[in-house]
Structure formats: structure tokens, C-alpha cells
Amino acid sequence: MDFVDIEHYDPYNDTWARTCPAVKYVTNFTATACHGKLYVIGSCAVKYNALTLQCYNPVIDGWSIICSPFIPKYLSSPRCVSVEGLIYLIADNTKKVYCYDPLANMWQKVQLLHMLHENGGLVALDGQLFATGGHWKGMEGDYGVEVEVYNRGLNSWKVECFLPRLWIYSGTCSVFLDPSQWSDPFPIDET
């Protein structure tokens, strides 16, 4: 298989449908929506290729590869989120954080995380970024899982808390739906 199979969900009809596949095959990727488009950032982990930025435009039902200056090099297990028109990107086992502005087509570095985060996640809530993930502490093998919060206005990270359980692998998801913006309610299943 040399393509990334994409499906989309229609909550009004409670159905899934195929979308045309991405232009470049990637196995090590992350995705987020920004400005009404889907952005996929990744590489082929088997070949250790540099990152590729791909964009799906639902208006034309098509993908394009975006050539962007200063795109980060290969990143292991990248994660990204969109906040107020910008895309933030982190990767496993690094403190580096990047920000992409789709309208200007420019990447820039953001303040480094305090700690390495392995097998964690990245979510946006109330305009802030929350990075989770663990790391080994010293030679004694203690493992800790922290949550760091990024204040975009101050361009700074702080350790917010430590998770109560030690998770070797974790994933995150954040969904906020504002039903006041919809003209029709979702259908109710009466079965």
C-alpha cells in the first residue's frame, strides 16, 4: 500500500465516507484542521525521510504538498494541534516545539519544553497548549509523567502537574462543540 487512506465522518448522517488519499505516503504523521482545511505533517518512518506538509482542501476535494521554508527535519511520532489559525508541532523525546502559520506559509521555533516527553500527546484547551508524556529520571529508572502548559502570550512553558499514574503510552483527544452554531439538531436514534 503506497497511499494514506483517509475517511471523514458526517455527524448529521452518522456515516463515514472515503476521501481521496493524500499525495505522499507517510507512516509517521500527525493531522489537524486549520482554516477549514486538513493538514498532515509527517514522513515515512521506514525510510527516515524529511517531514512533508500536505493539505486537504474539502472545497476542491483535493490534496497538495506545501513547500514551506524552515519546515522541521524528521521528527519521531509528531503531534500537532491548531490554535487560533496557527499549527503547533512537537515530537517524541525532544524539547523542541514549532509553530506553523498557514497563511504566511512560515515555520518558527517556539520556547522549548522543560522536559522530554515520550509517548505523550498535545491538546489545545482555552487557547493554551497542554503537552503530556513521560520520561526516565536518572539512572535509578524512575519514570515520571508530567503535563506542561504553554502560555502563547508569554511564549513560555510551565510544569502544571504530574499525572497520578505512570503511563508508558498515552494519547489525548480534545473536542469542543458549540451546538448554538448549528441550525439543525443531530438526529436522535429512537431504537
Score class of each variant (00 low, 15 high):
Asp2Val: 07
Leu53His: 01
Glu84Arg: 11
Val40Ala: 07
Leu112Gly: 06
Ser180Cys: 13
Asp92Leu: 00
His114Lys: 15
Pro58Lys: 09
Pro187Arg: 02
Cys173Arg: 12
Ile66Lys: 08
Pro102Met: 05
Phe162Lys: 08
Asp178Phe: 14
Leu177Gly: 04
Val159Trp: 05
Gly85Tyr: 14
Lys158Phe: 13
Lys158Cys: 07
Leu113Tyr: 01
Tyr150Thr: 08
Ala31Asp: 00
Phe186Asn: 02
Tyr48Ser: 13
Val4Gly: 13
Pro72Gln: 11
Asp61Val: 15
Val4Ala: 14
Trp16Cys: 13
Ser183Ile: 12
Thr15Cys: 10
Met106His: 12
Val147Tyr: 07
Lys137His: 05
Asp92Gln: 07
Leu53Gln: 02
Thr132Gln: 03
Thr132Cys: 05
Pro102Thr: 12
Gly120Ala: 07
Ile90Lys: 01
Asn13Lys: 05
Thr132His: 04
Ala50Cys: 02
Val147Cys: 00
Leu154Gly: 04
Leu38Val: 15
Phe186Met: 00
Asn119Pro: 10
Ile60Trp: 01
Pro78Met: 07
Tyr9Ile: 12
Pro164Cys: 10
Cys55Arg: 08
Leu166Phe: 14
Thr132Val: 04
Gly138Trp: 04
Leu89Ala: 06
Cys161Lys: 10
Asp10Leu: 14
Trp136Glu: 15
Cys55Val: 13
Leu89Trp: 13
Val97Glu: 03
Val46Asp: 05
Ser68Val: 07
Asn93Arg: 04
Thr19Gln: 05
Lys73Met: 11
Asn49Tyr: 06
Gly134Thr: 03
Tyr98Ser: 09
Glu190Phe: 13
Asn155Val: 01
Cys161Trp: 09
Pro179Met: 11
Phe29Lys: 03
Gly153His: 12
Cys173Trp: 14
Phe176Asn: 11
Glu7Gly: 10
Tyr98Thr: 09
Ala45Tyr: 05
Trp63Val: 05
Ser180Ala: 13
His8Cys: 14
Leu122Glu: 06
Asn93Pro: 02
Cys20Phe: 09
Tyr169His: 07
Ile60Pro: 02
Ile71Tyr: 04
Lys158Arg: 15
Glu118Ala: 09
Cys55Asp: 13
Pro58Trp: 15
Asp101Thr: 10
His8Met: 14
Ser68Tyr: 09
Cys34Asn: 06
Thr52Leu: 12
Gly133Gln: 01
Thr27Arg: 00
Gly85Asp: 07
Glu84Ala: 10
Thr32Glu: 03
Gly62Phe: 13
Pro72Cys: 12
Lys47Pro: 00
Ile168Glu: 06
Thr27Pro: 02
Tyr169Gln: 00
Thr191Lys: 01
Tyr12Ser: 04
Val149Leu: 11
Ser77His: 02
Ser82Arg: 04
Tyr56Asp: 00
Pro78Ile: 01
Ala131Val: 02
Ile168Ser: 07
Leu154Met: 09
Asn151Trp: 10
Phe176Tyr: 15
Tyr100Cys: 06
Trp167His: 10
Asp14Trp: 05
Tyr74Asp: 06
Ala91Cys: 04
Trp107Asp: 07
Ile188Pro: 05
Ser180Met: 14
Leu112Thr: 07
Pro58Phe: 03
Gly141His: 11
